[in-house]
């Protein structure tokens, strides 16, 4: 019965998505504990609901894709918090640029090293090369290089989730506390999903993370073209 109503509904998917996230944020506000990571809780609520009522993902996505449609204007709008932190950007541009270049190089090099250790073939290797950048760029690079772009998307999403979940304890452990450093680290390692965490932490973190997505995305396009030749 629920499945009948839901199939053919345009707003069910959108409602479940916005509802899950709002509930996740309310839980975070109520309990405050870092275990209530809004993104993780929202994903679990959405997926849990679909599994519980045996609603196929495709049915859900029929409506949810209208929410996803806003991802482009939302990403474009990241320029606004970035512009508001123009002073911090100007003041630290050397460190920010050094960090972003480090991010692109360490991502490509660590994928290369692990691909050798785990014995990945060329097709698998290029699938992982663009793992740190935002999914639209990464998918494009992977397809361009002849990788499994569907797996690239999975790996990129997972990278974002890992960054969003573990950034705070990991960065604290390594005594990385400066807001600019935290922001660039999040954006470089885990793209837009990491940036959502950076926005939660603070405005400087969010702005630096937004900047890192763009610059490291563009640098990775060039870097991956070179690294494709190594395996």
């Amino acid at each position: 019965m629920l499945n009948d109503i839901v199939t053919g509904s345009v707003f069910f998917g959108a409602f479940l998505t916005v509802g899950s996230y709002s509930l996740a944020l309310a839980l975070k506000k109520r309990f405050g504990h870092p275990i209530f990571n809004p993104m993780l809780i929202a994903v679990l609520l959405t997926v849990g609901f679909l599994l519980l009522f045996r609603i196929p993902y495709q049915t859900y996505y029929e409506g949810a894709r209208y929410i996803s449609y806003l991802v482009t204007p939302a990403t474009v709008s990241l320029a606004i918090p970035l512009y508001e932190q123009l002073e911090a950007l100007k003041k630290n541009y050397k460190a920010i640029l050094a960090g972003i270049v480090t991010g692109v190089m360490s991502s490509l090099l660590s994928v290369l090293a692990l691909a050798l250790i785990f014995g990945l073939d060329h097709k698998e290797y290029v699938t992982f090369l663009p793992k740190s950048v935002t999914s639209a760029i990464g998918m494009g690079i992977s397809a361009e290089l002849g990788g499994y772009s569907a797996i690239t998307v999975v790996v990129i999403i997972l990278t974002g989730i890992i960054g969003n979940l573990f950034a705070q304890p990991v960065l604290r452990f390594f005594k990385i506390t400066d807001p600019v450093a935290v922001g660039v680290a999040l954006g470089s390692s885990s793209h837009a999903v990491g940036t959502a965490k950076a926005m939660e932490i603070g405005p400087v973190e969010g702005a630096m993370s937004s900047l890192s997505i763009t610059v490291s995305g563009l640098l990775t396009v060039a870097g991956a073209m070179i690294f494709r030749n190594f395996i």
Binding site: T17, V18, P38, A42, Y60, I67, I157
Partner: peptide, 12 residues
């Protein structure tokens, strides 16, 4: 922004 990425993550 996170809401707009959520459908993709649920796709996992």
């Amino acid at each position: 922004m996170l809401v707009t990425i959520l459908p993709l993550m649920a796709g996992l």
